[in-house]
């Protein structure tokens, strides 16, 4: 059992990180008062942009192409999300429909461009990040093998972003203002702060972080753009709800979902798990989210003004 756990843990973490980033992006957006259902599409944009960048530059830049690809993925996600920001903030459009349009547009446009560039629609990169044991820390009993072995450097960057976001959102006056935009925008406006600018920031952050999530998928476990992130963006929205719109909550929720996904993937080769059909692990995050919604519906922690135009 212990050996199984040690061998699947790095995979669970690898699955968790893209979802964590995307979910965190959703947190920024929803906290600022804009519902963003387009996270799946924004992830895909980051996934695609980083794949193209790395493919074009890896011959000359070598391993340095990876961080550059990551940054381009972040930028592409942020830029693409401005479509959603413009529609929902300036034009007061239905945010659910706009988000759906973002998803469809991203899915069609990325594959369209990928097909034009590579013919098949898949963009494969030559190298990914090498997994490394962290010196000293990986020697700590129990948590060493679980958390500090076989890890990607992006994992630590992303966790740092998560920590900094927590500080930004909950320990600074800027964060207070941003969150207030999602609860009571007119109060923020009466304090002389532009609700529109804050919401633009929130949506752009959601695009940037979802783009980062997509790029991380590429350079860690996937290694190839194949035109879909297989519902991870929607799973991130589920994690946002399951985590009750709080940074620690989404960390827990995404990790929970990451473990469930990993177990579902490996359950057929691990005798002790074979008795449970894998479908239960796969649908578990969605059923859990529905149950969480039912349980918390009486006093939902959702930002009150999320989805409301201002």
């Amino acid at each position: 059992m212990w050996n199984t756990l040690v061998s699947i843990f790095p995979y669970a973490i690898a699955y968790t990180i893209p979802m964590l980033m995307t979910s965190l992006g959703g947190l920024y957006s929803e906290r600022s008062g804009v519902t963003n259902l387009g996270l799946e599409g924004l992830m895909l944009v980051g996934y695609f942009a980083s794949a193209i960048t790395i493919k074009m530059s890896e011959a000359t830049l070598g391993i340095n192409a990876l961080p550059i690809g990551l940054l381009v993925g972040v930028a592409a996600g942020a830029i693409f999300s401005l479509l959603h920001a413009f529609a929902s903030i300036n034009l007061k459009a239905d945010q659910v429909i706009s988000g759906t349009a973002i998803n469809m547009l991203a899915a069609a446009l990325t594959v369209y461009l990928a097909r034009t560039i590579s013919g098949s629609g898949n963009v494969r990169i030559m190298m990914g990040i090498v997994r490394k044991n962290i010196p000293f820390l990986s020697k700590i009993p129990i948590i060493g093998p679980l958390f500090f072995s076989q890890s990607y450097w992006t994992t630590w960057v992303c966790l740092a972003i998560w920590g900094l976001s927590w500080i930004l959102l909950y320990k600074t006056s800027f964060g207070l203002r941003l969150r207030a935009c999602g609860e009571h925008p007119s109060a923020v406006a009466s304090a002389g702060i532009s609700v529109h600018k804050m919401r633009y920031f929130g949506v752009a952050m959601s695009g940037a972080l979802a783009g980062l999530g997509g790029a991380v998928i590429l350079i860690t476990y996937s290694g190839e753009f194949n035109g879909t992130v297989a519902g991870l963006g929607f799973l991130s929205i589920a994690a946002l709800i399951f985590g009750q719109w709080k940074p620690l909550g989404i960390l827990g929720a995404t990790f929970f979902f990451g473990i469930a996904t990993t177990i579902a993937n490996v359950s057929q080769v691990i005798p002790s798990l074979q008795v449970i059909p894998p479908v239960f692990f796969k649908i578990f995050p969605y059923v859990a989210t529905l149950l969480a919604l039912v349980l918390f519906s009486k006093n939902s922690a959702a930002p009150k003004a999320s989805g409301e135009p201002f």
């Binding site: 529609a87 034009l91 349009a101 547009l105 069609a108 369209y112 097909r115 034009t116």
Partner: peptide, 18 residues
């Protein structure tokens, strides 16, 4: 590429939303 049709549909949705 055939995805042009899906792109056109997505653009139409976006413009209907806005």
């Amino acid at each position: 590429p055939p995805e042009i049709a899906d792109t056109i549909i997505a653009v139409i949705i976006y413009f209907t939303a806005t």
